[in-house]
Nucleic acid binder design. Structure first.
Lengths: 250, 250
DNA sequence: CGTTAATTTGATCATCTTCAACATGAGTGG
DNA sequence: CCACTCATGTTGAAGATGATCAAATTAACG
């Protein structure tokens, strides 16, 4: 599976971006799109582990993932950190800073390309393009309901349910980007999955083993194959639909 | 402690509202405020248990709490429900609907008065008052970081830490509204606290008992007295600052 | 009052964590 | 190309935190 596309190296306009339908400017007509494009900054690709912003940084912009993936983490004074979410191509991140300074940090999980959307400029434009303004609200609202679904997952569901929900979420997100919904490669280590789901690494490992015994999912390191989406879904009890960070803003 | 004020029965303008400094229009000048006021709807007080909106309802408006309090709950198909947050006077709620339909329900915990802010009208005005627009973003961003702090709490903290964080959050919110930060009355039953914190009712009860033994907090039913804010804070390890639903939008 | 809901306490049980050891694998320098 | 190392992943056994079950106590309210 190719998870990094080559187009990341050239200057891409939103118009030609394969992710346009998932991104903020979707629904804009050609003229408005052009205007929007002008404020979008392209950044050189990030290496694995590179940090886009730190908790405490002044807020400058929202970002969109073009390729690759990253994690959003909230650090605690005692050094512990909590992963708040993972961002995939077509998804926006950086909302944790809109209040003024970032409360989280964003870290690339692999080679990753992103666009920069300076919020001031964007919201200036949005003032004159109501549909863009509404889209901005929706994107933020989606972030809210994603986080809230995650609250439900952490508060009420068992370890097994959590992992099932996580895998289903990834499956949906890969599928809506044209990749297989049953075969994919995780860009994060077990440790990050565990942290995100509020569990111990060992638990994740054991759960993968159990899922394999039951022929629901087989995982070989980062490579995952889902054998029965149905049985995964059953486990989760299709709770809410967009569990676990499925920034689908449909 | 009086937690319902009498002014709720008369038509109040934002200008005269004691919560103006906490609410959306804070920072507006007299002229803009007047304009804002015109779209704000006043609703008759809600009785305990009354529902403001159901999950599935079309989104119409955001709401502001004038007096009383309510819980925001996300229901699951299996009948289980998860409390996403509690809203206190001066706080806004309804964000779970901005995408189109509400993903949660809002239920009054006691006699409660609210204002209605139709989002279309508000964002029309906001287009011409940039500071209001920014305030709207901030209020939503605050909701996001509140939910994210809650994720951290649920994923990484022990039962005791969670209750401590919850009580501290309430303390801060009461205090910023001019009430005592050490003596207050909970508007929700133990069952709701347990649900919110992802714990069993019995656990909450035991934790209150333990906190009493240790002379940190004494609780008599809904009446709570915090004897040592310091020691509560220590437990939580001042993680992030605005843990557990502190919609302070400072 | 009497009846129901809310809260507390005790005893047992399960899930998940922790600690420990081992396996696998990728990357580095010889 | 191999040996070595550090990161990652797996598995087992013991332990702890919090859930569940059961029962008693208290509070709320018609």
């Amino acid at each position: 599976m190719t998870d990094v596309m080559d187009i990341t190296r050239v200057r891409v306009s939103c118009k030609d971006c394969s992710l346009a339908e998932l991104c903020l400017p979707r629904g804009l007509d050609a003229k408005d799109l052009q205007r929007f494009e002008r404020v979008v900054g392209q950044k050189p690709p990030l290496k694995k582990g590179e940090i886009i912003y730190h908790a405490g940084d002044d807020f400058r912009a929202l970002f969109a993932v073009k390729s690759g993936s990253l994690k959003i983490i909230m650090s605690q004074p005692d050094g512990e950190e909590q992963i708040i979410g993972f961002s995939m191509p077509g998804e926006l991140f950086g909302f944790d800073g809109i209040e003024d300074v970032h409360s989280c940090s964003a870290v690339a999980l692999e080679r990753t390309s992103i666009c920069e959307l300076p919020l001031d400029a964007v919201s200036d434009i949005a003032r004159e393009i109501p549909s863009l303004n509404r889209e901005l609200y929706k994107v933020m609202a989606n972030e809210i309901s994603t986080d809230q679904s995650m609250l439900l997952l952490l508060a009420r569901r068992s370890a097994e349910d959590r992992l099932a929900a996580f895998l289903l979420s990834l499956s949906r997100r890969f599928s809506s980007r044209g990749f297989s919904e049953t075969d994919f490669v995780l860009s994060m280590p077990r440790h990050d999955i565990a942290n995100y789901l509020g569990l111990a690494v060992e638990t994740i490992s054991r759960l993968f083993s159990r899922l394999a015994e039951e022929n629901v999912v087989s995982a070989n390191g980062r490579k995952v194959r889902i054998h029965s989406l149905d049985r995964l879904q059953q486990r989760v009890g299709d709770c809410a639909g967009n569990t676990a960070n499925a920034r689908s803003h449909a």
